[in-house]
Amino acid sequence: MFQILTMLLLEMQLYVVSALFTVEVPQQLYVIEYGSNVTMECRFPVNGSLNLGLLTVVWEQKRKDQLKPKEVYTLRKGRALPPSQHHDYTGRAALLHSELKMGRAILQITSVKIRDAGSYLCLIDYQGVDYKYITLEVKASYQRIKTQVMKKTGEDKFVFMCQSEGFPLAEVFWQNEKNSNLSGSVNTTYTLTTDGLYNVTSILTLKPNMSENYSCVFWNKELNEETSAHISTLGLYQLEFVQDRE
């Protein structure tokens, strides 16, 4: 009878300890620029000096388009388990061990890629078990827009081209100096790069006004972000005029 009572009391104590053990996250959503670094954090109670040999930390990533989660970083009983780490995170994901003694399990990912976006599980086993989820979103602004303009051979029309890479997929609009949308012949296409970026190319063909400048506008609806580039035909007109005089 005494042994049964002791076991019941022990189970009750373990339940209370586990119930008091709670993992918290100071930030649930991170929006990070492609190619930059990110540190995501979850916190756990230490209650005195940390006994590293009792600590297990598991970080996993889950995306809607993958069947099973990717192991980002695992510390089991105070020891890192690099062989179990998914190859997508090899050399890029690390746990900041110096912060563990303060109850901070901080995951650092360098050179963030589009495929790093998703839901991250932070599980802590230390005198109790608990976990939380953190969401990582990755954006890539269409900041660098390459432009080109050429005159169609034997015609009085010009071909304008704008090309840029980013994420998510952007729409492209063409405008003149009066900010009026142009109704000329526009052809916008895109391909996916190996890094998961959208390579967007937009071509406008029309007979321009000699004195006007034209703009291509990349509109990223999901990020509510707009970037643009300006193109002028004046240089080509001047070159054509010089060639005609010669």
Results as ranks from 00 to 15, higher is better:
49 S>P: 00
126 Y>E: 02
140 A>S: 15
105 A>V: 05
157 K>W: 07
67 L>R: 08
87 H>Y: 14
86 H>N: 15
79 R>F: 08
71 E>I: 15
106 I>P: 02
147 T>N: 10
130 D>I: 09
57 V>T: 10
150 M>I: 14
88 D>W: 09
153 T>G: 03
48 G>T: 08
85 Q>F: 08
113 K>E: 08
90 T>I: 12
119 S>D: 07
79 R>D: 09
40 M>I: 02
93 A>C: 04
49 S>L: 10
101 K>T: 15
78 G>T: 09
92 R>K: 13
74 T>A: 13
89 Y>K: 02
74 T>C: 05
66 Q>W: 04
80 A>M: 06
48 G>S: 07
133 Y>H: 15
148 Q>F: 13
46 V>R: 02
48 G>P: 06
125 D>G: 02
159 V>K: 03
104 R>I: 14
63 R>E: 14
39 T>Y: 01
48 G>I: 07
149 V>K: 07
123 L>E: 07
95 L>V: 15
96 L>S: 10
98 S>D: 14
143 Q>F: 00
34 Y>V: 04
149 V>G: 01
78 G>Y: 11
119 S>V: 03
137 E>C: 05
141 S>V: 14
70 K>W: 10
108 Q>Y: 02
43 R>H: 09
87 H>F: 07
113 K>L: 09
47 N>L: 08
144 R>Q: 15
76 R>A: 11
101 K>Q: 15
151 K>E: 05
52 L>Y: 06
64 K>F: 03
117 A>P: 00
70 K>V: 07
71 E>S: 08
82 P>I: 14
56 T>R: 05
74 T>I: 13
42 C>Q: 00
104 R>D: 13
41 E>R: 14
110 T>L: 10
112 V>Q: 01
95 L>S: 10
132 K>N: 10
141 S>D: 09
44 F>I: 00
95 L>G: 11
60 E>M: 07
116 D>H: 04
105 A>E: 03
110 T>M: 10
105 A>T: 09
155 E>V: 00
124 I>T: 11
156 D>T: 01
136 L>E: 10
98 S>T: 13
142 Y>C: 07
40 M>E: 08
58 V>F: 13
71 E>L: 13
85 Q>P: 08
66 Q>M: 09
42 C>W: 02
113 K>D: 11
38 V>D: 05
59 W>T: 02
128 G>L: 07
67 L>S: 12
33 E>F: 05
55 L>E: 04
118 G>W: 04
147 T>W: 11
61 Q>C: 10
129 V>D: 13
133 Y>R: 09
155 E>R: 03
112 V>H: 13
123 L>V: 06
64 K>E: 13
44 F>K: 05
144 R>M: 13
42 C>A: 14
124 I>N: 11
33 E>Q: 15
113 K>I: 08
87 H>N: 12
67 L>M: 11
45 P>T: 03
137 E>F: 00
100 L>N: 03
40 M>L: 12
118 G>V: 06
113 K>R: 12
152 K>P: 00
102 M>C: 12
118 G>S: 08
93 A>V: 03
43 R>Q: 14
58 V>I: 14
136 L>W: 04
97 H>L: 06
129 V>T: 14
50 L>C: 07
70 K>D: 13
154 G>P: 01
126 Y>R: 09
61 Q>A: 05
110 T>V: 15
52 L>H: 01
68 K>M: 09
113 K>T: 05
